[in-house]
Every structure is written in structure tokens, then in C-alpha cells.
């Protein structure tokens, strides 16, 4: 660990201190946790602003309209022809900031309209194709499967569960029909399918949460080794 610089050591110690401050919440809420939590909020917001500024606003916004102005930041750009059309998103972006000022906040509705219209338009087409048409298509599988001319019972069973599982779970969400008789039975089967789905999701959630904790413990191990070994 001797190859670590002073800045690296400091980073390890600051990181470890902040990690313990957050973990202290497990005992009970306390000022150390509150300090770390509030610091996180401020640091995160500023981080996003800085990243947005350098990665998108400078090269794709201001840099497009006033390439000379940003040449100090991006000296190697080959295309330095101004494109004044980019004034429009910049003006719309500035209009968005009027939301911070109550009396003229309504001006932010113009950029919001573009954001909402764009999201609605793209989501409509993408969800229609990927999450509706493709899913219906992928669920349309043969209910009897033959492999090399003989009956494949396992594949058949799986396909039957898949097809009727999708229909039954959809029926469970369909409230225009009373859940009685065949519909009631199907929706019951739908609940079981959904319960298995939620069980699988729970299992995977546990996996994910433990993995994140492992990452922190690995960091603390590295920190301990930096002065113990």
C-alpha cells in the first residue's frame, strides 16, 4: 500500500469516515448520519450540474453557437462553423430556469411542452412495439411441442404454463369482468403466477442488496489494509 499518495490516503480516510457515518444509522438516527446524508444531497446535485455543463452544454449547446467562445475548452475541434439553430434549445433551456422564479414560472411550460411531447411521442411508439406487440408475439408459442417427431412433455408443459400464465395474469388485472366461474378460476391461477414472479423478484432483490453491502465491506477492508498491512 506504500504506492498510495497522500491524496489517495486522505481519500481512503474520508471515504471510511463517511461510510461509518452512514452505517451509524443502523444503530439509530444521529447527527453524524444526518451530516453525511445532507452532504450527499448537496454533492450529488452539484455533481450532476458540473457533468451536464462540461459534457453536453459546452460541446453540444454553447459550443455549437459560439465555437470560438469554447475553443479554450475544446481546442481540437475541426468543425468550428457556428450553427445558430442551437440558439433554440439554449433559449428553451433558459426558459426552463424561470421555474425558479414564481411569478414568471409559467414560461417554463414551453420547454416542458417539448420534453413532455417528445417523451410521450417516443414512449408511445417504443412501448407499443417493444413491450406490447413483441411481447404478444413472443407469448404466441405452440401448445404442443414435438422434438424429432416425438412428444416433448416438458417443453409442452412449459409452453402451456407460459401462454395460460400470461393470459391468467392479465385477466387478474382486468376488472371489467366479475372474477367468478372460469374467469375467477383463471384469475386465481393468475395470482399464483404473479406470486411466483414476485417471489423471484424478491430473491433477486436480496441478491442485489447483499452485493452492494459486499462492495462497502471490500472498501473498508482496503482501508484497513492501508494502515494495518
Amino acid at each position: 500500500m506504500s504506492e498510495l499518495s497522500f491524496a489517495d490516503h486522505l481519500a481512503l480516510w474520508v471515504g471510511a469516515a463517511l461510510t461509518f457515518m452512514i452505517f451509524s444509522f443502523l444503530y439509530k438516527d444521529n447527527p453524524f448520519y444526518k451530516f453525511a446524508e445532507h452532504l450527499f444531497v448537496g454533492v450529488s446535485a452539484a455533481y450532476w450540474m458540473v457533468v451536464g455543463f462540461w459534457t453536453t452544454l459546452i460541446p453540444n449547446g454553447i459550443g455549437k453557437v459560439f465555437p470560438e467562445m469554447v475553443s479554450i475548452f475544446l481546442p481540437n475541434l475541426s468543425d468550428t462553423t457556428p450553427n445558430y439553430y442551437f440558439l433554440i434549445p439554449i433559449i428553451l433551456g433558459i426558459m426552463m430556469l424561470t421555474r425558479l422564479f414564481g411569478s414568471i414560472g409559467w414560461i417554463s411550460r414551453w420547454p416542458m411542452a417539448i420534453i413532455i411531447g417528445f417523451s410521450a411521442g417516443t414512449n408511445l411508439t417504443r412501448y407499443l412495439q417493444s413491450d406490447f406487440i413483441h411481447q404478444v408475439h413472443s407469448s404466441s408459442v405452440p401448445l404442443v411441442v414435438l422434438e424429432n417427431g416425438s412428444f416433448a412433455w416438458m417443453a409442452t408443459f412449459s409452453n402451456v404454463v407460459l401462454v395460460f400464465g400470461v393470459i391468467a395474469a392479465l385477466l387478474y388485472f382486468f376488472f371489467s369482468l366479475e372474477h367468478k366461474g372460469i374467469i375467477g378460476g383463471a384469475s386465481k391461477f393468475g395470482i399464483w403466477i404473479l406470486m411466483i414472479t414476485f417471489g423471484a423478484a424478491f430473491g433477486y432483490t436480496v441478491m442485489a442488496r447483499i452485493s452492494l453491502l459486499l462492495g462497502r465491506f471490500e472498501f473498508l477492508q482496503k482501508w484497513l489494509q492501508s494502515f494495518l498491512v
Partner: peptide
């Protein structure tokens, strides 16, 4: 335009 406006949402 959407991508450039999105940056202003970070600032907002």
C-alpha cells in the same frame, strides 16, 4: 433539442 434542454434540468 431534448438532450440540450435536459442539461438545464440538472441546473434547475
Amino acid at each position: 433539442w431534448f438532450d440540450v434542454i435536459a442539461v438545464f434540468s440538472f441546473i434547475l
